[in-house]
């Protein structure tokens, strides 16, 4: 396996005035290998989108490094850097409603990357846009329409075409299906899957829906309050979660099966995710953890291989 994106000790703080800062991403290290899909899950506000955007240079890094292959990506992107990396790394944005400019036609939206980052002429651009519309299951004659004329699922496809037309190698998909109906989610997931195979893409797939993430991903990473608490192959993380937070996530995930839901014990977690402004000392999950130990409130657990298995990492003193 060849590392494609290597994230080391990445930190992203947002200063929000009055000497307060949001610890949105706090010391995250993760290696994403060529051709794999890494699923990133975690509660709202845990820093998933910020991590994705910081990897791509859409936010400046507070500290830490991101390497693409062997090349260290800039701390702060300039226009020329976007120019240089746009063709290799792209993002599909969280919200299919607000992420498409309502005043641009579909052709302009999808073709924009080519116009900015390639020397294709306008005829070539139109051809490529038509080809990608077909590829994502829309029609070439949709080109002159505006985003509001499309359903949520269709807009998500437009977002996918826009990100993929440059044929990038690495794509951050930020909740590409959350706003969609079940029947349309399957369309979009299958579409991503087949394009991934065709183009040999590597994906960071951010989502809330654990069942879908397990289904889509090769590996899964679980984020809590800016930190990764567990990383590993998708099936073991989903079926035999090690971190108490992952355990609560998977046991809260309702399955479309009345019989197994009847036998599910109530597992409600107590408390709320703490504010990322006042990060508690020690393990960030300690206040809500059913298995908390005195040590957890003093020291911060680091991601370590679980039972010596380097593929499976967990940040929890239970496994020391």
């Amino acid at each position: 396996m060849t590392p494609l994106v290597s994230i080391e000790h990445l930190v992203k703080y947002f200063d929000i005035g009055r000497d307060q800062r949001v610890h949105a991403v706090d010391d995250v290290s993760l290696t994403i290998y060529e051709g794999e899909i890494v699923g990133l899950v975690g509660e709202s506000g845990s820093g998933k989108s910020t991590l994705g955007k910081t990897i791509l240079g859409l936010h400046d890094k507070t500290s830490g490094t991101v390497k693409y292959g062997d090349e260290a990506l800039p701390q702060h992107y300039r226009a020329a850097d976007f120019q240089k990396y746009a063709a290799r790394m792209q993002m599909i944005f969280q919200d299919p409603y607000s992420s498409l400019n309502p005043r641009m036609t579909v052709a302009e939206i999808i073709g924009e990357g080519l116009r900015l980052h390639s020397n294709a002429n306008s005829t070539e651009i139109r051809e490529r846009v038509a080809e990608w519309l077909r590829r994502v299951g829309l029609q070439p004659d949709h080109m002159s329409r505006y985003p509001h004329e499309f359903s949520g699922g269709q807009r998500q496809r437009i977002g996918i075409a826009r990100a993929l037309i440059l044929e990038p190698e690495f794509v951050v998909c930020d909740e590409p299906i959350s706003a969609l109906d079940v029947s349309v989610q399957a369309q979009v997931v299958n579409l991503l899957d087949s394009i991934k195979k065709e183009l040999g893409l590597t994906l960071l797939f951010i989502a809330h829906d654990l069942s879908m993430v397990r289904y889509v991903s090769d590996r899964m990473a679980v984020m809590y309050l800016g930190s990764l608490v567990e990383v590993g192959p998708a099936n073991p993380v989903f079926f035999e979660p090690a971190h108490p937070y992952t355990q609560i996530l998977t046991s809260s995930n309702p399955e479309p099966d009345p019989e197994s839901e009847r036998h599910r014990a109530s597992t409600s977690i107590t408390g709320e995710i703490p504010s990322p402004v006042n990060i508690p000392a020690g393990c960030r999950f300690a206040d809500r953890c059913p298995k908390v130990m005195p040590q957890c409130r003093q020291e911060t657990p680091k991601l370590k291989p679980l039972n010596g298995d380097a593929d499976r990492q967990v940040a929890c003193f239970l496994y020391d």
Partner: peptide
């Protein structure tokens, strides 16, 4: 979130 959802459903 699923965790809060579980609380509300319970």
């Amino acid at each position: 979130d699923v965790t809060i959802q579980a609380q509300i459903l319970d």
